[in-house]
Design a protein around this nucleic acid. Structure first.
Length: 801
RNA sequence: GCCCCAGUGGCGGAAUGGUAGACGCGGCAGACUCAAAAUCUGUUGCCUUCACGGGCGUGCUGGUUCGAGUCCGGCCUGGGGCACCA
């Protein structure tokens, strides 16, 4: 798909940069090292070689001079330089944060490695453990990242929306609640964040995160609370899990004074649905108007008092059942807020809080800073040194890159860098006393957050070639899987701004136009022991599937994105071996709209193969009839000439528009149509040689971006001594693309009943006359009076009786 | 749970609110052939009719409109996203 665009744009006269690189760090290589006892580097470079060979086999027009791999020191060393720049700018910091910890394997787990709360390899119950970790301050750009989404007009709306939700700006208030114990003794205060200050009079409890600073000390003398906190730590913290889990809590020996009524005391609970990472880690519960709070209140028999009532309803009649009322309405039972709508109520509540000094309006972001520490080997080492005397010291620039040691071991659990016998022991760059390297590596999303800029130019002494970036960036057309809609694209937008503020380039948005292609999916298969099987190992039979080797029963799994780990892949070589690269390229483009997922099947590839043959035949059989190179048709022409020229120019018009709109499957259909027209048109009497040449060359030029090898062969056959890849994309003559007459459907009362041939763009009154004069129309109308005639030019005529 | 997207022949899919099913696959029939393959031609949404024609039809259900696959409301089913996979 990308190659088609690159070749097409090149033919249109653009200077095209079409590079390829390898995002090569990450867990798959480390898993392979553990499972297959191969070094991650060896495994990675072997895969790169295989994939590169596959890409070359397909004939992609890639500029291999710019190839890069993120796992090579010349790339990650420059990334370390960027890290130091960002550190100097205050965009990097350390703080405590929790990770999934496998207590048996002594290793940090990714969320995908935690299955039902247990480690995927060890099966041990996973714990949350606090580690001091590195963070990129992406929240410094939260406003900018959100606001500029609206200027990304050439991005899919879906992706823009997903990013907006991810950044998640909300407005509300911070409210301070004073705390007292059961005897009424002062116990300080706690701040909560709420998006619904208007519902404060409906409050019936306060809830704190299990990790809230007020909870820990109380767990020390309350074993049941300690138990509850442990449970919360073992709970999955994804949003989906938080919202679907049963709402549970534990009562604390604290009460919160209501901010509008000091004598009104709310019970305080620790609760499993409150996240320490969001807001202040504390909230007030208003069960009548929040579903989570309602479930919690029902479980613990807390009051449910409605304070927002649907418009026009009597507050006395309004009751909350199983569902909280979250729509707009009129405030009631709320003292000074009574009678206001939700929006006005929020403003009035905030104004009152501010005048009392126990609250203020606030904006809250769902976006959190980007935690980039990974306790793994196969990633970019974080270039800092920890010294007992000097603290955290950046590695001096001249010492970059900090290289990964080649002799790491993977046979024991834990971080290979941390347990390496020598690697981390270095002198402090400041005081020269013994110190330790940072053993965390960077999240691999960092690697892919700036590679597009490195493609523009790859200087040895700095991350980017600023002039080259000015020339090439932003990327005019970015094509990637929809699975990158949030993280990769957001991190790249952040990195670009960070690099801008560090003076490496002058740009905020890296990708001017984005196209998200669908995923290629395939059915999955497992043998009786639960091992994944390749499709070529399986034979489908009536009522099930068996292995080809020994006929054993096979479990047919779901249709999923092709991935090596699930073995549901089809190697492109197989298709290229049988049909050739051009047929494979054509087939991939032919059927499915490119933004939709496709389930891989080779049903239909015969059509692509036949088409390849037909193109070759129609060109080679007619070369001898074609006129000389470079002579265009002109002057008077017969009907046959005109018909063929029309077909050619219509094809140019349609294919150009379809490629511009990324409707490649339609472009393919137009080319099938044109080839049909060409074959019958060439058979007509009295075709001129110049017209034959134009018609044949048009076909070759139009297929050139899709089937480059065949197109070159045909182009040479037609007598050219230059490459069709360097030829200009054809333009069409508008006078040849419009027809003299059109067939228009006739509707009677909206139902299609007849049709009529009309001159193109005939005036409306002529159309009316011709339609009403048609025998069939007269018969169908049975003399009924015509009330109205709607004429849609060149489309349809609707007669209303 | 929340947010978003999709649903059209046997299949992949076309269709600026204007002739639903372009194009391809598959099927059927025919030509060529001793035969097969390849190739070519015709045909192919469903029901009904000897035929002309008629009826139905874009997940279900209401609505807007001269006209709805397309716009709006409600529902059903499938898929995606929801912070350490990349």
């Amino acid at each position: 798909m990308g190659d088609l665009v690159a070749r097409y744009k090149r033919m249109c006269g653009f200077n095209v940069l079409h590079p390829m690189g390898w995002d090569a760090f990450g867990m798959p290589a480390e898993n392979a090292a553990i499972e297959q006892k191969v070094h991650p580097a060896a495994w990675t470079f072997e895969n790169i070689e295989t994939m590169k060979a596959q890409l070359k086999l397909m004939g992609y027009s890639i500029d291999w001079d710019r190839e890069l791999a993120t796992c090579k020191p010349d790339y990650y060393g420059q990334q370390q330089a960027l890290f130091l720049d960002m550190m100097a700018k205050g965009l990097v910091y350390r703080k405590e944060s929790s990770v999934n910890w496998d207590p048996v394997d002594h290793t940090v787990l990714a969320n995908e490695q935690v299955i039902d709360g247990r480690g995927w390899r060890s099966g041990a119950l996973v714990e949350k453990r606090k580690l001091t970790q590195w963070f990129f301050k992406i929240t410094a750009y939260a406003d900018e990242l959100l606001n500029e989404l609206d200027n990304l007009t050439r991005w899919p709306e879906k992706v823009v929306l997903m990013q907006k939700n991810w950044i998640g700006r909300s407005t509300g208030a911070h409210v301070t609640f004073e705390l007292v114990d059961a005897k009424g003794q002062d116990q300080g205060s706690v701040e909560v964040y709420t998006t619904r200050p208007d519902t404060l009079f409906g409050a019936s409890f306060m809830a704190l995160a299990a990790d809230h600073p007020l909870v820990g000390p109380r767990a020390a003398y309350d074993p049941a609370l300690a138990q509850f906190v442990t449970e919360c730590r073992q709970m999955a913290t994804t949003e989906a899990a938080m919202q679907t889990a049963e709402k549970k809590g534990h009562r604390l020996d604290l009460f919160a004074r209501h901010p509008f009524d000091r004598d009104w005391l709310l019970p305080v609970h620790a609760a499993n649905f409150v996240l320490m990472d969001y807001g202040t880690g504390a909230l007030f519960g208003c069960p009548a108007h929040d579903q989570r709070d309602l479930e919690f209140a029902r479980r613990y028999d807390l009051p449910v008092k409605p304070v927002v009532v649907p418009k026009g309803m009597d507050p006395a009649q309004f009751e909350i059942g199983a569902a909280a009322f979250t729509d707009d309405g009129i405030l009631a039972n709320s003292g000074f807020l009574d009678g206001l709508d939700v929006e006005a109520g929020k403003l009035a509540a905030i104004a009152k809080l501010e005048s009392q000094g126990n609250g203020r309006g606030a904006t809250q972001w769902r976006l959190r800073d980007w935690g980039v520490s990974r306790q793994r080997y196969w990633g970019c080492p974080i270039p800092v040194i920890h010294c007992d005397a000097c603290g955290v010291v950046p590695v001096p620039r001249q010492d970059l890159p900090v290289r990964l040691p080649d002799d790491a071991t993977f046979d024991v659990p834990g971080n290979p860098l941390d347990r390496h016998p020598t690697w981390k022991h270095v002198p402090c760059p400041k005081c020269a006393k013994p110190a330790r390297r940072e053993t965390d590596t960077l999240d691999t999303f960092a690697d892919s957050s700036w590679y597009f800029a490195r493609f523009c130019g790859q200087p040895d002494d700095r991350p980017l070639d600023r002039e080259a970036c000015d020339y090439w960036l932003p990327v005019d057309q970015y094509i990637g899987g929809v699975e990158h809609a949030i993280l990769h694209l957001l991190y790249s937008r952040f990195f670009t701004r960070a690099m801008r503020d560090c003076g490496h380039l002058d740009l905020a948005e890296p990708f001017a136009s984005l196209f998200t292609q669908g995923m290629v999916t395939h059915q999955t298969f497992k043998d009786k022991d639960g091992n994944w099987l390749y499709p070529e190992q399986v034979r489908l039979e009536q009522g099930g599937a068996v292995t080809i080797k020994d006929g054993e029963f096979v479990t047919v799994g779901g249709v999923e994105k092709m991935s090596k780990s699930k073995r549901n892949v089809v190697a492109p070589e197989t298709i290229v071996d049988t049909y050739g690269a051009d047929t494979a390229r054509w087939f991939v483009l032919s059927d499915t709209p490119p933004d939709r997922d496709i389930e891989w099947t080779d049903a239909g590839i015969d059509g692509a193969w036949r088409f390849t043959q037909r193109v070759w035949r129609v060109i080679s059989e007619n070369i001898s009839l074609a006129g000389a190179v470079a002579i265009r048709p002109q002057g008077d022409m017969g009907n046959a000439d005109l018909a063929l020229r029309r077909a050619a120019h219509k094809a140019i018009q349609a294919v150009t528009a379809d490629i511009d709109a990324f409707h490649f499957n339609r472009a393919v259909a137009r080319l099938y149509e044109y080839t049909n027209a060409l074959q019958s048109g060439l058979g007509a009497e009295g075709i001129s040689a110049t017209v034959i040449r134009e018609a044949l060359e048009t076909l070759v030029l139009l297929i050139a971006p899709m089937m480059p090898h065949l197109a070159e062969e045909c182009w040479a056959g037609l007598g050219h001594d230059t490459l069709v890849a360097d030829a200009a994309w054809p333009s069409f003559d508008a006078s040849l693309t419009r027809e003299d007459s059109v067939t228009v459907g006739i509707q009677i009362n909206g139902k299609r009943r007849a049709e009529i041939d009309l001159p193109t763009d005939a005036p409306e009154d002529v159309v009316r006359e011709m339609v009403l004069a048609q025998d069939r129309v007269i018969k169908l109308l049975e003399g009924k009076p015509v009330r109205k005639i709607i004429v849609v030019p060149n489309r349809i005529v609707n007669v209303v009786v």
